[in-house]
Amino acid sequence: MQRQRKQFNTINAASLARWIVITAFVAVTGLIYVYLTVQLYHLGDRKKELERQLVNVRAENDVAQVQIAALTSRSALQRRLKEGYLKMIPIAEQSIVRLNTPAEVSSENAIQPVVNQRAGR
């Protein structure tokens, strides 16, 4: 009796490998998709947070500008001057050095102007 040859189911290694690669690729692609989607959500949240911070910084900047404007306004400076926090000394006429050409008095200025005594009030 002829010895019966043992039957083997051959595995097509190439095909198996191909399927493994395809499956792995699909799985990895899926994972990457999920990962990237989650990342996008996180980045979106981060973006919103940064936007909020930027708005806050701008707001703080605006508040600071308004405070500067208020503190350097004429009324505030005059109040401080009255309260004695600021000292101002008028510059005497003889202390002023002018670089521009002095205006000439035309011959029409024959009329002598007068001193206004009340102006010095």
């Binding site: 008095v105 200025n109 009329i111 102007p113 007068v114 001193v115 206004n116 009340r118 102006a119």
Partner: peptide, 9 residues
Amino acid sequence: AAAAVPGFT
């Protein structure tokens, strides 16, 4: 006359 400013016409 009271409008005058010394030094200016």
